[in-house]
């Protein structure tokens, strides 16, 4: 699949997205945010809800992609998958107790999974029926904003160098040799520091949770 503006092929999008490439992320964000926002706003949500749902959607899509939960079943491309996750997430939230008595969903703008939020296809069914029963298990692999906030708070308690080494190793997936060169360390020392830093994070997280 070629991107709407023709800049990126689907393979480039997937590869760049998986690597956290800023250009691809930024393109994906700008390309899809307005549609998700418009959907959330016309279904009882706020700007903040739209931002949260969209970012949670990207995080979930990224997580599923990097764990190979996103595969051939999605023949329609990453953008379509991302929007589907966002719709699913918003539906789930609107069906929760907090939203049970709020205003009715705008069924005009919710037109089933094939239609990327556009209300011009005549889809009139209530949004609760098909998408929440979708057989795609990967939709259930949600990432909550609260979890990420917690992760960020815990990481903020590590020393800067620790955060950096974990970031370079797990997010950028650099080898110990590359990290050593980036941080002006020997490879052994980089390895030791990464081990100590992960242990600190382990203590912070499991120490708190247990």
């Amino acid at each position: 699949m070629k991107a709407a503006a023709g800049q990126f092929s689907e393979a480039e999008i997937l590869e760049g997205f998986k690597r956290g490439d800023r250009i691809i992320l930024s393109w994906l964000y700008r390309q899809n945010y307005a549609a998700v926002r418009s959907f959330v706003l016309s279904n009882s949500g706020t700007d903040q809800d739209a931002r949260d749902v969209f970012q949670e959607g990207i995080l979930a899509a990224w997580n599923n992609l990097s764990k190979n939960r996103y595969e051939s079943r999605e023949g329609k491309g990453l953008e379509s998958y991302l929007r589907k996750i966002c719709r699913f997430r918003w539906l789930e939230r609107t069906r929760s107790a907090a939203f049970r008595y709020s205003s009715a969903m705008d069924t005009e703008s919710f037109s089933g999974e094939e239609n990327d939020f556009r209300g011009d296809s005549g889809g009139k069914q209530l949004p609760s029926t098909d998408l929440l029963n979708d057989s795609d298990d990967s939709l259930n692999q949600l990432i909550r904003k609260e979890e990420i906030d917690q992760a960020r708070q815990l990481l903020a308690r590590l020393r800067e160098r620790c955060r950096k080494i974990l970031y370079l190793f797990y997010y950028r997936r650099l080898s110990m040799e590359e990290i050593a060169s980036e941080m002006e360390l020997t490879a052994d020392s980089a390895k030791n520091q990464k081990y100590r830093c992960l242990n600190q994070l382990r203590e912070l997280y499991y120490g708190n949770a247990e």
């Binding site: 960020r152 997010y171 382990r202």
Partner: peptide, 26 residues
């Protein structure tokens, strides 16, 4: 499972930092 959770925390927090920054930029 425990180690994967920690790696996920680092990865998702870093990704979200990027998303926040893209949103602000936008």
């Amino acid at each position: 499972v425990r180690q994967e959770k920690l790696a996920d925390m680092v990865r998702l927090a870093a990704l979200q930092e990027q998303l926040e920054s893209i949103h602000l930029e936008m």
